[in-house]
């Protein structure tokens, strides 16, 4: 799974985070280091789609939260991935 959007939504599903915190979290749970251009390209897209939104902050580091629509999208995408993973693993075991 290397889609930046899914990685960001998965990271925010665990709690609100700002850009750098997402970067570190994603590196820890997926082993993928998103570059700043990729990260903010995906954040821009996700916010435009209404799947994430900024939460109030007095700091320069802006935290984001996942919305209801974002959770539904993430659940649906992960379910599809889960199906692929189960089928793939099952076939590997039967060989």
């Amino acid at each position: 799974m290397s889609d930046p959007s899914l990685l960001i939504l998965s990271s925010l599903a665990g709690g609100d985070k700002h850009g750098y915190a997402m970067m570190v979290d994603i590196e820890q749970f997926a082993g993928i280091r998103l570059g700043p251009g990729t990260l903010y390209g995906a954040i821009t897209r996700l916010e435009a789609l209404g799947w994430i939104r900024p939460v109030g902050s007095m700091e320069r580091r802006q935290p984001y939260t996942i919305t209801g629509g974002g959770r539904r999208h993430l659940r649906s995408e992960l379910a599809k991935l889960n199906l692929v993973v189960r089928i793939g693993l099952g076939r590997l075991e039967n060989v």
């Binding site: 750098y20 251009g37 821009t44 320069r60």
Partner: peptide, 29 residues
């Protein structure tokens, strides 16, 4: 996004890969 993006660049360790990623990000945007 300018202010928060600048804050991210201050936090993230600068690297050649980061520069290339940023260049593609600029072009795409």
């Amino acid at each position: 996004y300018g202010t928060e993006f600048d804050a991210l660049l201050e936090d993230a360790k600068p690297s050649a890969r980061g520069v290339i990623d940023l260049l593609f990000g600029v072009l795409k945007m």
